[in-house]
């Protein structure tokens, strides 16, 4: 497949995921479409060098995360410091659990949590939320599957506390 065909397939299969990913990297709605376009341009350009060494999904997510990280590094001035999962994984972070929250508020809270994270932890939690397992997350991010599994475990604990629900997700 050529560059254009690969891009069309990626945009068709992962277009919605790219929108969600952009929302996790750019809180301001008016700038989000710039990031989405930047990701799509990076994707299209990247397919000139796609050689099938990894799956299309891994390629798409790597390019999207790398483009978004590059965007954050350029934009990030005078903002609040980013934190790690370990920083969030403490009972004293001031977030109170609620038995039920409506979906809009829940999504808002989830986005706020993700947007506070450092790039690597943000990549892991986004991959997890997109339904990926530890091996796939390792391929995209570059950390070992074991390390990814540990991070997923921590993410589940954080999300459980924040959303007050039982964990269940397959890895």
């Amino acid at each position: 497949m050529g560059q254009d065909e690969l891009y069309r397939e990626a945009a068709g299969s992962y277009g919605a995921a790219m929108e969600r990913l952009a929302g996790a990297y750019e809180a301001r709605a008016d700038r989000r479409s710039d990031l989405v376009q930047e990701i799509h341009i990076a994707l299209w350009r990247s397919f000139a060098g796609f050689d099938g060494r990894c799956s299309l999904r891994t390629w798409v997510y790597r390019v999207a995360h790398n483009a978004a990280t590059s965007y954050v590094m350029r934009q990030r001035r005078n903002n609040a410091p980013l934190v790690t999962l370990e920083d969030l994984d403490t009972p004293s972070n001031g977030v109170s659990a609620e038995v039920s929250v409506d979906r809009a508020r829940a999504l808002e809270r989830l986005l706020a949590l993700i947007q506070r994270l450092k790039p690597l932890d943000r990549q892991v939690i986004l991959s997890y939320l997109e339904g990926m397992d530890a091996v796939a997350i390792g391929e995209i991010t570059g950390i070992s599957a074991g390390n990814a599994a540990i991070k997923i475990h921590r993410i589940k604990q954080i999300l459980t506390r924040q959303f007050h629900q039982g964990g269940r997700h397959g890895e």
């Binding site: 990076a42 990247s46 796609f50 790597r62 390019v63 790398n66 483009a67 790039p119 690597l120 990549q123």
Partner: peptide
């Protein structure tokens, strides 16, 4: 352009 070959 080669950023798909690189992990995050």
């Amino acid at each position: 352009e080669d950023n798909g070959l690189q992990n995050c």
